[in-house]
Design a protein around this nucleic acid. Structure first.
Length: 472
DNA sequence: ATGTGC
């Protein structure tokens, strides 16, 4: 793959047939994926062939190999120019994302209280593959309400406060969810998992604000140095997974009928305006609401424990997803266009002044939540005006080792002890699960964030360090 | 990521 270095944090893959637009990779030289081990830059070029794609096929600094689209990929298609939507451009974990809550508590006040707090959070957080959930739904109609109402419905039912919704992307729910387009199988898988963490890189962490880069913005977000926070990283569990599976299969069948040819079967797609495209977007929006309700419920469970163990509450800083497609309006060559923006392992980063921001964030921009790899650190960023890539930035550290490679690399070592040696209390997670998530399996999140800022995609606001972690 | 994959 030939890369042209355009500027220190920006590389271009020149357009060549059948690409419709160039590829653009935001990264430092050392963050670029190893072409021998990772085909993600070929995937960036493949995405550039999709009908209706505008500007470029973008990759964030944490880019790595994924299903069809790279993880860390951003692609926008023009809805009125036969632009397509592709389930692979969202990913299997639809609306996987991060929620950050902040306590009116300094980390020094956790002395002597951490172990019972972590025990409580571990016990209150359903996790791992399969069963266990905060919420046991009474009937199918209640799942329907979750799929339509997201965090709004959870708050309505007492799992949170109205103020939470102001600090949620889309005020807690997207309004174009269509539960009728969600298969019976997806409903069955999802019904028993509302309010559950999952496994893999999903986690609930107690963190402390280690460093503030911008006092004014951090204050507006509700963050200060030394403050204790809770970060929740989770998604749409089996429901989103099943929806992705269903629609990849369905679209693959009708692609030729729509005259679409792609270089990789995993790029199955359909025009946004087609029956299949609209059905997927309706089902995807339902999964997006499910994921938000899921994080709202996990937060409600964590709040209960936090209040019991520390006597303090938790205020929502923000909830944002990093696996989603959205119909948004953007300037393209000087004209306002309706675009289907796919962000897969990429986070929306609205700049200050954006009309979709709530009043109390209007002057500072949207909080962008970046979970680091286990035992390292996480970042809070904000959007910047005039950024490229449709107001998007990175989503995390990004894998450099497959799960299998990571397990092999940990052979003969004790991941739990390695974390304990760093004074990080761990609850849950199998030995294998921990081995798969060790920092060595990931890029350095600080280098990723530095590259994202250097590329003009976002700005750093604060860095958080882990104190205790609950894993699936 | 996932009622896990070689």
């Amino acid at each position: 793959m030939d890369l042209v270095e355009e500027s220190p944090y920006r590389f271009r893959i020149d357009r060549h047939d059948p690409m419709r637009v160039p590829g653009v990779v935001f990264a430092s030289r050392s963050l670029l994926p190893d072409a021998g081990a990772d085909k993600s830059l070929e995937q960036v070029a493949n995405v550039a062939t999709l009908p209706g794609i505008v500007d470029a096929s973008y990759a964030m600094p944490d880019v790595h190999w994924g299903y069809g689209f790279p993880i860390g990929g951003v692609a926008a298609t023009d809805v009125e120019q036969d632009g397509v939507v592709s389930p692979g451009g969202v990913g299997f974990d639809i609306s996987c994302g991060v929620r950050l809550l902040a306590a009116d508590l300094d980390r020094t006040e956790l002395d002597g209280r951490l172990e019972p707090l972590m025990d409580g959070l571990g016990a209150a957080t359903p996790r791992g593959m399969g069963k266990g959930a905060v919420w046991h739904l009474s009937k199918d109609s209640e799942l329907d309400a979750v799929l339509r109402g997201g965090s709004r419905y959870a708050v309505e039912r007492g799992f949170g406060v109205e103020r939470d919704l102001v600090r949620c992307e889309d005020y807690g729910a997207v309004d174009d969810a269509n539960p009728a387009q969600v298969s019976e199988r997806a409903v069955e898988r999802g019904a028993r998992q509302v309010g559950s963490l999952g496994s893999g890189n999903h986690f609930l962490e107690v963190q402390a604000v280690e460093e503030v880069y911008d006092d004014r913005v951090a204050t507006a977000f509700g963050l200060r140095p030394g403050q204790v926070c809770v970060m929740i990283h989770s998604g749409s569990r089996g429901l989103g997974h099943q929806i992705c599976t269903d629609y990849v299969r369905g679209m693959a069948k009708v692609m030729t009928r729509h005259g679409i040819h792609v270089p990789d079967r995993q790029l199955a797609c359909a025009p946004v305006s087609s029956h299949e495209g609209r059905a997927y977007l309706g089902a995807m929006a339902a999964a997006a609401n499910y994921a938000r309700a899921n994080r709202q419920l996990l937060a409600a469970a964590a709040r209960k424990v936090f209040e019991r163990e520390t006597g303090r509450g938790l205020d929502l800083v923000y909830d944002i997803s990093h696996n989603l497609a959205k119909i948004e309006t953007h300037d393209v060559d000087g004209a306002r266009r309706s675009l289907c923006v796919h962000r897969k392992g990429a986070t929306r980063a609205l700049p200050p002044g954006h009309p979709d921001l709530p009043d109390d964030l209007r002057d500072v921009g949207q909080p962008v939540l970046i979970p680091g790899s286990m035992g390292t650190g996480s970042y809070v960023l904000t959007g910047v005006p005039g950024a490229p890539a449709f107001a998007s930035t990175c989503h995390g550290a990004g894998r450099v080792q497959s799960r299998k490679q990571a397990v092999k690399a940990e052979r003969g070592q004790d991941p739990r002890r390695q974390l304990a040696a760093q004074d990080i209390a761990v609850r849950g997670a199998s030995r294998r699960g921990l081995a798969e998530e060790m920092p060595a399996a990931y890029k350095d999140v600080s280098a990723v964030v530095e590259a994202a800022e250097g590329a003009g995609l976002c700005r750093r606001v604060a860095r958080l360090v882990p104190v205790g972690v609950v894993k699936g």
